[in-house]
């Protein structure tokens, strides 16, 4: 019985967890090792760590920090931000990441996805997709933490990324990110219809009902940051609500 995943996300800047709205106006939340350990203990099914400043500053998430997070987290850890080549991915996996998440570099050089799959296997390769709604035209793919437009169709890119070797899609709605107005369910449905790999929904979660709606729309994981950081939603309470609503959730 497949179980839906609850995934807190730590957006990092200069080694600290930060949070903004639509990727802007970042403010300090705390120490990533302490926060990752707390979420893991509370029942998070996976932890995503994204260095949001990495791509724009031309560097990647630090292996030393990943190593410290690995020591305290006993569920899968996904690391992303500024990963542009196989060796950088290797350093992060060797430090203790179970999967790497690639965004901008994969769009610029799609063959990177094939290289990552050939070296580490599809199960290590997460392709992060930031999408913004176009008027009646579907969704456009964004890069560089939402600051760069591509003109590409996000759904077409998802299909291509899976063909090249992506094992999972981390799908963020740029329109909903940080807004607490619910996940973009149309986007989730469109992407999960187009690809067979697991899709993790991101952007807009405010209550347990948003998580339930994401799962009902085809996502197998639902990611959130702000609602967890600020205690608006507790992971234990969230899981109890989803269980009570009949959703399949990890309980131990």
């Amino acid at each position: 019985m497949r179980l839906n995943r609850i995934i807190p996300c730590l957006d990092l800047r200069d080694g600290r967890v930060v949070k903004g709205v639509r990727f802007e106006g970042l403010r300090d939340i705390g120490d990533p090792v302490e926060i990752a350990g707390r979420y893991s203990d509370a029942g998070a099914d996976e932890i995503v760590v994204l260095d949001v400043s990495a791509t724009s500053e031309g560097r990647s998430a630090t292996p030393a920090l990943v190593r410290r997070i690995r020591e305290v987290v006993d569920v899968p850890v996904v690391v992303g931000g500024g990963i542009g080549d196989v060796e950088t991915a290797n350093r992060l996996l060797d430090a203790g990441a179970d999967k790497v998440s690639v965004n901008t570099a994969a769009v610029m050089r799609p063959e990177l996805i094939e290289s990552l799959r050939d070296r580490f296997g599809r199960q290590c390769v997460v392709i992060a997709i930031d999408a913004i709604r176009r008027d009646r035209m579907g969704w456009e793919l964004l890069v560089r933490s939402g600051r760069g437009r591509t003109g590409l169709d996000a759904i077409g890119w998802a299909s291509r990324a899976v063909d090249l070797g992506a094992g999972e899609i981390l799908l963020t709605s740029h329109d909903r990110d940080g807004t607490r107005s619910g996940y973009d369910l149309g986007l989730i449905r469109s992407i999960t219809r187009a690809v067979s790999v697991p899709v993790v929904a991101s952007g807009g979660a405010a209550s347990w009902r948003d998580f339930a709606a994401a799962f009902a729309s085809g996502a197998t994981g639902a990611l959130a940051a702000g609602v967890f950081h600020e205690g608006q939603v507790g992971i234990g309470d969230l899981k109890r609500s989803l269980l009570a609503a009949g959703k399949e959730i990890r309980t131990c």
């Binding site: 019985m1 497949r2 179980l3 995943r5 099914d45 599809r122 199960q123 094992g167 999972e168 067979s196 790999v197 697991p198 197998t220 994981g221 990890r250």
Partner: peptide
């Protein structure tokens, strides 16, 4: 199945 590979939690 609709979702493959299996990547996630199972009972």
């Amino acid at each position: 199945a609709a979702v493959r590979p299996q990547m996630g939690w199972n009972r």
